[in-house]
């Protein structure tokens, strides 16, 4: 990828907070999915995706996030998003994600549930 892209994750209680930096397209989305799958393989099922440093998510990137939401549903877990720019919040609303995953203003609110 030509732009900076970084995924980091940490545990916060029952949640795994995945923080993403950069434009989420197909390749970046796959990296986020790999990180998500690594934690689900260890038994975690509650996730917060912090997109504070993400400026845009294209429709292919969103389709990968949908895959993650579906997997948390299968695991009786949860997926929440936080720190969304207005364009990302609007994209998620248009694509119906907000019906299946909660959106919080801050990471602290997301972890508090």
């Amino acid at each position: 990828m030509s732009e900076v892209f970084k995924v980091t994750a940490r545990q916060a209680g029952k949640f795994i907070v995945i923080a993403v930096e950069g434009y989420i397209n197909n390749l970046a989305g796959e990296k986020v999915l790999d990180e998500f799958n690594r934690w689900t393989a260890e038994g975690y099922r509650h996730f917060v995706l912090n997109l504070e440093k993400t400026q845009l998510v294209n429709s292919i990137g969103v389709s990968i996030l949908i895959e993650m939401i579906e997997k948390t549903q299968e695991l009786n877990g949860s997926m929440a998003f936080c720190c969304l720019l207005p364009i990302i919040a609007k994209t998620f609303k248009i694509m119906g994600l907000t019906q299946y995953a909660r959106v919080y203003e801050t990471e602290a609110e997301a972890i508090a549930g």
Binding site: V62, I66, Y100
Partner: peptide
């Protein structure tokens, strides 16, 4: 439809 994986480009 909600949670459909692809086909949103035009809608967006």
């Amino acid at each position: 439809r909600p949670l459909q994986r692809r086909g949103y480009g035009r809608v967006l």
